[in-house]
Design a binder for these strands. Structure first.
Lengths: 189, 189
DNA sequence: TTGGTTAGTGATTGAGCACTAACTTCGAAT
DNA sequence: ATTCGAAGTTAGTGCTCAATCACTAACCAA
């Protein structure tokens, strides 16, 4: 049984927690399931984190940072339509390779209201702040066009929902996806 | 305490369950909370429904039907851009008056994968079927334009997420919403 | 090698939960 | 007025789960 530094362990806990929380959400995931995935005893989690909620929060924040970084790297040095394409393709890659990150996003959106009604105001604040940072991250390469950015985010959310519902690749719901790939501009209204 | 027919009770259970499940999701909602909201003892729920899952499913199906009906009624006799406006406005009204229906949507998306991994294949099937019916409902009035329909749904999902995160009306995330309505200076809610 | 620190475990607890069984009350038709 | 089915309750069971506690095993510096 390999010993690890607490910091390294915390890392693997966050990874395992992301997988588990993405599947079951906050209430549908037991700390035991996370511990089992890490390969560590359940009580030890409470030595690495003050409680279940802290683990969830850590996973949520990691999820946001990863997504921001994905778009930052994809749009590096690009602008306008090229950046749009690059970021769209990057997200497609996330769908294929890290679907749990999309699910984690959904779980975090859904967890805000519940947390808020339990008196936890910080969680929602943190999620909204993360969203705005993500928003700004895509806003700049898209030429600071509010409509363009909103549409991009909207398509992202639709993708998240379709993936969550389990629509297989090739299903007709995906047909109208990616206006950036379909034509040289998003549909005019 | 007014006595009701079982059918009427089931109705109020579905309404209460929608509110509660919208807040806490499947696992974050106790049957006791639902019963309390209905004004009935918790065990009695199990006489009206075979189990918690059946209550959730009923609430999910009701949510889908209501949303479909909202768009059907809004687009009655309209086509193209007019239908788009009408349905957009109808959804805006849902945001204001029935936010729990949006949250219920999110909860149902998120519940699919978990159910599937517990062996329940019917639930996801039912959700996907509902989505397709909803899709077709807006597709026809929008002139059977796939891109238009997809964009409409995408904006809907973005709205759901923003509402879930608790962004207040007037926040700048709402700025780029409804490109079709923005030009006309639609008042913010 | 010893003294101190850090990583990690097993046993347990108390609360909350879905669900059951057995009983009571209401109201309408006879 | 009585009866009978349907509406509704009280009491209780067994289980799951987050969190605690007392403990052991590995590492490290002097």
């Amino acid at each position: 049984m390999a010993r690890m530094s607490a910091e390294e362990r915390r890392e693997s806990v966050i990874r395992a927690a992301t997988t588990e929380f993405a599947r079951g959400g906050y209430h549908g995931t037991s700390t035991e399931a996370i511990a089992r995935r890490v390969g560590v005893s359940q009580p030890y989690l409470f030595r690495l984190f003050p409680g279940k909620k802290a683990i969830f929060l850590a996973a949520v924040e990691r999820c946001i940072e990863d997504t921001i970084r994905t778009f930052e790297e994809a749009s590096q040095g690009l602008h306008g339509e090229e950046a749009l394409h690059a970021m769209g393709n990057a997200y497609t890659k996330v769908i294929e390779e890290r679907p749990e990150r999309l699910m984690m996003q959904m779980q975090m959106y859904v967890a805000v209201k519940a947390a808020e009604e339990e008196g936890d105001h910080e969680f929602g604040e943190s999620v909204r702040d993360g969203w705005m940072r993500l928003w700004d991250t895509v806003h700049v390469p898209l030429g600071a066009d509010v409509g363009e950015t909103t549409t991009f985010m909207a398509y992202g959310m639709l993708i998240n929902c379709l993936v969550a519902m389990g629509f297989p690749a090739g299903h007709r719901v995906w047909e109208g996806m990616y206006p950036s790939a379909r034509a040289k501009g998003r549909p005019e209204h």
